[in-house]
Design a protein around this nucleic acid. Structure first.
Length: 255
DNA sequence: GCGACAG
DNA sequence: ATCTTGTCGC
C-alpha cells in the first residue's frame, strides 16, 4: 500500500468502507483497557521517517500499562483524505509490538467522518480488527454547528447527503477548541463520545492520546540528540531513552 | 472555476 | 505534521 496511485487508493477506501461496523464491540461495552496511537516525523541521517507511538492504559483508572513505538520511511505525501496511506504502516508496526491489545483504541484523525467513510481510525480498525475511535483537532468532512462553550457540550456531525450522524463535535474543556470525534470501527458515535469524555482529565485530548503525543515528543528529541552532528553517546537514563538504548535505532532507521 | 482540506 | 517567542490563564 506504499505505492498506490490516488485512483487506486480511493478505490481501496471505498471497498474497505464496506467492512466498517458501527456496532459497539462487547469489549468496548465492558472496557478494561484503552489505548492511543499518534504519529510524528523526524529526518534521521538525512532520511525522512514517520514513527508511531502507542500507549495502553487501564480503564477507568487510566494508569499507564504499556508504551511502544515503531518507525518507517515516509513513502506517501500528505493529501487530505488519504492520511492513512502515509501513517498506517507505522501505526500497525507499533500495535504489533504491544503485549496488551486494548479494548478500544483512540487514533489521531477522523473515523467515518470522511469523504468515503474511511478515515485513518476506520482504516486501522478494519485492518487490525480493533474497536477504534477517531479524534481530530480539525474538521475534514461533515456539517455541524459549533457546540456551546461549556465542557461536555456536543454538536452532531452530519453527512452532507444523508443527513445521517457520522460523529460529534465535542467541547472537552470549557472555552477550548472542540474535538471532532467519530467512530472508527466496531463502535457507534454516541459510545465513542461517551468513552472519549470519560478519558478526559486536565487536557482536551483524551489521556491515551495525550500520552502518545508526549511520548512522540520525547522520542523525537532523543532521536535528534542521538543522531545529531555531535555525539551518539548522550542518552539519559529516563524511560524513553532506556527503550532507545535497548532497541538499536537500526529498527528505527532501516525498517 | 473557486475555495476547503485530518496529520 | 513541523518551525517558532512570547504571552495569557489556571
Amino acid at each position: 500500500m506504499a505505492c498506490l496511485s490516488l485512483i487506486e487508493a480511493k478505490a481501496l477506501q471505498k471497498a474497505l468502507s464496506g467492512w466498517v461496523s458501527l456496532r459497539t464491540s462487547v469489549f468496548a461495552k465492558n472496557l478494561r483497557t484503552v489505548g492511543g496511537v499518534d504519529c510524528a516525523y523526524a529526518t534521521i541521517k538525512g532520511r525522512p521517517r514517520v514513527f508511531a507511538c502507542a500507549v495502553v492504559l487501564s480503564f477507568p483508572m487510566l494508569e499507564l500499562l504499556e508504551e511502544a513505538f515503531h518507525a518507517r520511511p515516509v513513502t506517501f505525501p500528505y493529501i487530505p483524505g488519504y492520511l492513512s496511506f502515509r501513517e498506517l504502516p507505522s501505526m500497525l508496526g507499533t500495535l504489533t509490538k504491544l503485549k496488551i491489545v486494548p479494548d478500544v483504541l483512540f487514533v489521531s484523525g477522523q473515523g467515518v467522518a470522511h469523504p468515503r467513510g474511511l478515515g485513518i481510525a476506520s482504516h486501522l480498525g478494519v485492518v487490525a480488527g480493533l474497536a477504534t475511535i477517531g479524534i481530530a483537532k480539525k474538521p475534514l468532512f461533515g456539517l455541524f454547528q459549533a457546540p456551546s462553550l461549556e465542557a461536555g457540550s456536543v454538536s452532531a456531525l452530519t453527512h452532507p447527503d444523508d443527513g445521517s450522524v457520522i460523529g460529534f463535535v465535542v467541547r472537552a474543556k470549557t472555552n477550548v477548541k472542540p474535538l471532532y470525534v467519530s467512530p472508527g470501527h466496531r463502535m457507534d458515535a454516541e459510545t465513542a463520545v461517551s468513552i472519549a469524555l470519560q478519558c478526559v482529565q486536565k487536557t482536551k485530548l483524551p489521556v491515551p492520546l495525550h500520552l502518545a503525543d508526549r511520548l512522540a515528543d520525547r522520542l523525537k528529541k532523543a532521536l535528534q540528540r542521538a543522531t545529531g552532528p555531535d555525539s551518539v553517546e548522550c542518552l539519559e537514563p529516563n524511560p524513553v531513552e532506556y527503550v532507545l538504548a535497548k532497541n538499536p535505532w537500526l529498527n528505527l532507521l532501516d525498517p
